[in-house]
Simulated scan of single mutants.
Amino acid sequence: MRLLVLGAGFSGRAIAQAFMLAGFSAVGTTRSPDKQVALAVLGIEPLLFDGEAISAELASVMEGATHLVQSIAPGKNGDPLFRPGTKPVGDLMPNLQWVGYLSTVGVYGDHKGAWVDEDTPIHPASTRSVERVEAEERWLAFSEQCGLPVAVLRLAGIYGPGRNALRNVEEGTARRLIKKDQVFNRIRVEDIGGSALFLARGGHSGVFNITDDEPGPPQDVVAEAARLMGAEMPPEVPFETAELSPMARSFYGENKRVSNARIRSLGFFFRYPNYRMSLAQMWSDNDWRG
């Protein structure tokens, strides 16, 4: 069994590692020659792909792939596998058995703190979320047309070893940003890998929220990291006066609690269902620096 990950970044690498532990071989694409070495160190066969033209080498890998995870953001040019002039996915990948498409809970838009699930009408606000919806629809239409299982994984805020509040506290970049009643869901990167493998093994198709059990205020995560480390509590910063990039500020324009009940109903168990136990594990095992 052979997995191809288009876009082997933080999440894509975790997915490849989960599949390899289950006996798969894995190829991961990257735009950067510098990152090829890092993929190879993990046992992932690296392949350069700029997200545009499909090279002969990539086409050869696609031909032998049995499983695909598409992690590349669509952008203004759309999904690279559905652009005009590109061969149909079924022709490019004749041995394909399952596809996972990595999307975002951002497609739901703002629900003013209310709970949402996969049946909640979506109202994407940002351009990037609108593009994700369009990509989801293409993959789900492909699934229906070809009878091939495609799982759309809507991911919450991703963290894990190397990317977390403990590192932010250590590096002095952590802030307790305060916006009244704001909550976010999160997801540990290893649970992304585990959920993708679970859905692939079961041949599951459809939309699945991949998120923790406990949406909460972002400042509480920072406070918990500082408490674990015995560090000075980072300062509170009012959202209204905080210096934020336009993208960071847009995240705070969406407020919702995202349910993961659908994938749990299939029998999947999250290893890290809340940020407190997850931060405690990283701190205790000293793997938080990545």
Rank of each mutant, 00 (worst) to 15 (best):
I158V: 13
F239Q: 03
L197G: 03
V183A: 14
G28I: 01
E240Q: 05
N164R: 08
L148T: 03
W283Y: 15
R31S: 15
L4P: 06
G113R: 07
V105A: 07
V258M: 10
S55N: 06
L148D: 02
A26K: 01
H67T: 02
N260W: 04
T86S: 05
V133F: 12
P88L: 15
V107G: 05
V27S: 03
A18V: 06
D213M: 07
R271K: 15
G43T: 13
I122S: 09
L199P: 00
V133R: 13
E134N: 13
W283L: 11
E243V: 08
H111P: 01
V107F: 07
D34R: 13
I15T: 12
A196R: 03
L148S: 01
V258N: 07
F19A: 05
V152E: 00
G90V: 12
P74V: 06
L199C: 05
F269Y: 04
A135L: 12
L47G: 12
G9Q: 08
T29G: 09
R271I: 08
G109Y: 04
N185C: 15
E57T: 14
Q36D: 09
S11V: 15
P46C: 10
S259H: 03
T86Y: 01
R138E: 13
P88Y: 12
G78W: 06
G78R: 05
P217H: 12
R264P: 02
M277Q: 14
T241S: 14
R31E: 09
Y101S: 04
A196E: 08
A248E: 11
V27M: 05
N260Q: 08
G9H: 06
N95G: 01
G7I: 07
S60Y: 02
N255T: 13
R163E: 10
V116C: 06
A22C: 03
L155I: 10
W288Y: 15
R31K: 14
A141C: 04
P161K: 05
L155G: 12
V99M: 09
M282H: 13
V5F: 08
Y252E: 09
W98E: 00
E45I: 04
Y159Q: 06
A156N: 13
A174K: 00
W139E: 05
W288Q: 07
S195N: 04
S250V: 13
G230L: 02
C146N: 14
L177T: 08
V133W: 06
K76P: 10
E236T: 07
Y272W: 14
A225W: 00
M20H: 10
A226F: 08
L96D: 00
D181K: 13
E52R: 14
M93C: 09
L166K: 03
P234S: 06
I54M: 05
P80C: 03
R138L: 15
A231F: 03
Q281V: 12
W115D: 10
K87S: 15
I210N: 01
G193D: 09
K180E: 14
A135K: 10
P80S: 04
K76N: 11
S265A: 15
V116E: 04
K112P: 02
L153A: 11
L96H: 01
K179R: 14
T127L: 14
I158G: 07
M1N: 00
A22M: 00
G147S: 10
M20I: 09
V89P: 00
S32T: 12
S245C: 11
P149M: 00
D287E: 11
R154L: 12
G203H: 03
